[in-house]
Amino acid sequence: MAIPIEWYLVLSAFLFVIGAAGVLMRRNLFIVLFSIELMMNAVNINLVGFSRLHENLIGQNFVLFTMTVAAAEAAIGLAIVTALYRNRRTLMVDMFDVMKG
């Protein structure tokens, strides 16, 4: 096996932590959505790396389903963004405090 599995896991950890940091510290709703996509990509790298380590294809098949969910999530997320922008005229996430969460 050419590339050690740890390399995949470390790269995935980098992307996941960057995505999580983006979700937590950015105010712009778009960047939050981008960061969620980054985190999903990190998971995909893990799945593909383990699929290569274990020499089966279930991991690669599962990535297809992750991408399906990511596409649906992006569509619904953007619909929510347009609805929020229409109602509140802002995209800064700390302005959406109707539910006092």
Binding site: A72, A75, I76, A79, T82
Partner: peptide, 10 residues
């Protein structure tokens, strides 16, 4: 569901 939800929300 994603398609219907996106249309409904937007």
């Amino acid at each position: 569901v994603g398609m219907v939800g996106a249309i409904l929300l937007a």
